[in-house]
Simulated assay, not measured.
Amino acid sequence: MPIYSYEAMDGRGIAVKGEIAAKSSDEAANAVAEQGYTPFKVTEKKAHGSKSGSFFRITQKVKLADLIIFTKQFRSLFKAGVPLVRTFQILEAQTQSRTLRQAISSILQSVKEGAALSAAMSNHGSIFPPLYCSMIEAGEMSGTVPETLERLIYIIEHEGKIKSDIKAALQYPIMVTIALTIAFFVLLTVVIPKFADTFLKAGFELPLPTLIAISLYKFLLNYWHLLIGGIVVLVFGLRAYFKTENGQYMRDSLILRIPVIGELFIKAAMSRFASIFGMLQSSGVPVLSAMKVLSGVIGNRAISREFDRVRDYMGEGQGIAVTLKTAKFFTPMV
């Protein structure tokens, strides 16, 4: 999501500056206005070393372990009764991640200017996802921030474990696929041509699969540059298409249809839904707001659309159990 720099005035007429993550300049201006400021300049901040419209963007991410440590330290200081401003000064001083330290500094400045903690965190969407900010906001409203931080720690650690399990489950199939691809090209470009020359000199008639393999070898030998060019164009084309909403939906739908892998992703998404939805409800987040948050953090565009459909039906007065029964991907247990 793009980052916008803004200049605004608060209710006392004092100029303030800051950064906010938003999809457009209008959305950024509205978000600044919701914080109680009057924006008079909103400009998109360009990433260093990148250009607008480039296929490659330099983005700085915070490691999951750093976010967990930050949340645990924040919880400990908050439970100890340390004032919020002092808490963030301490966190800024001892955080190892440079990106997270800069975000903490920005949050600290926003809090000093009177912004709510959840609003200040939402300005850094690449670090604090909507789920994180929504739960902090619910904790602020209900006065249960320490308990909310406890639940956040559990969710983040649970999410990290699920991602680790998925990577471990996919590691062996990926290694086998790479090995088979390498073996196929070695067989096609080295082994088969040598045996084919030997058989042809001996006057043997080659079988159809061998003839097809020889034809593929000749094609690679004569048109390898076209093949590489086609692959490059295909990669860039798919990369651009997958940045669109329809492209992401198509990609995620295809992933869910892959045997074994698709079922693994669906089970992981349902586990994520159950744990996060339960935590949001325990934190006092309304059901419709919880479904909106889940739609943005579930990690799959196809399942996310189902959440949007469920939320629309619930907004019309239908119960959550009835709508989930008619939705795709949701198991009878859910």
Rank of each mutant, 00 (worst) to 15 (best):
I3V: 11
Y4W: 10
E7F: 05
E7L: 14
E7T: 13
A8D: 03
G11K: 11
R12H: 10
I14Y: 09
V16E: 05
G18Q: 05
E19F: 05
I20R: 08
A22H: 06
K23E: 15
A31M: 12
V32N: 01
E34N: 04
E34R: 06
T38E: 05
A47S: 13
S52R: 11
F55G: 13
F56Y: 08
K61Y: 08
K63W: 00
L64C: 04
L64N: 13
A65L: 12
I68G: 05
F70C: 03
F78R: 08
A80P: 03
A80S: 15
P83Y: 14
V85T: 15
T87R: 09
Q89R: 13
Q89T: 13
L91C: 08
E92T: 11
A93H: 11
A93M: 11
Q94V: 13
R98Y: 06
L100S: 02
L100I: 04
A103K: 09
I107E: 03
Q109P: 00
E113S: 13
S118R: 03
S118K: 01
A120K: 04
M121A: 06
S126A: 10
F128A: 05
P129L: 06
Y132L: 06
I136C: 01
E140D: 08
E140Q: 12
T144C: 10
T144E: 13
V145W: 05
E147W: 05
E147S: 15
L149H: 07
I153K: 02
I156A: 06
E157F: 04
H158Q: 12
G160D: 09
I162W: 08
K163G: 10
S164Q: 15
L170D: 01
Q171N: 12
T177P: 00
I178G: 00
T181V: 14
P193K: 00
P193H: 01
K201D: 15
K201I: 09
G203H: 03
L208S: 04
T210C: 01
I212C: 02
I214N: 01
S215Q: 08
F219S: 11
F219Q: 07
L221C: 04
L227Q: 04
G229S: 12
I231F: 14
L238Q: 11
L238M: 15
R239H: 14
R239D: 15
A240D: 12
A240W: 15
Y241I: 15
Q248R: 15
Q248P: 01
Y249P: 04
Y249C: 01
M250S: 11
R251S: 09
S253D: 12
R257Y: 02
I258M: 13
I258E: 04
V260S: 07
L264T: 15
I266W: 01
I266S: 07
A274W: 01
M279Q: 13
G284H: 08
V285H: 02
L288E: 10
L288D: 07
L294R: 00
S295G: 15
G296A: 14
I298G: 00
G299H: 07
N300L: 09
E306C: 08
R311I: 11
R311D: 06
R311Q: 14
Y313E: 15
M314Q: 05
Q318M: 09
V322H: 04
T323C: 07
L324I: 13
L324Y: 04
T326N: 11
K328D: 14
M333D: 12
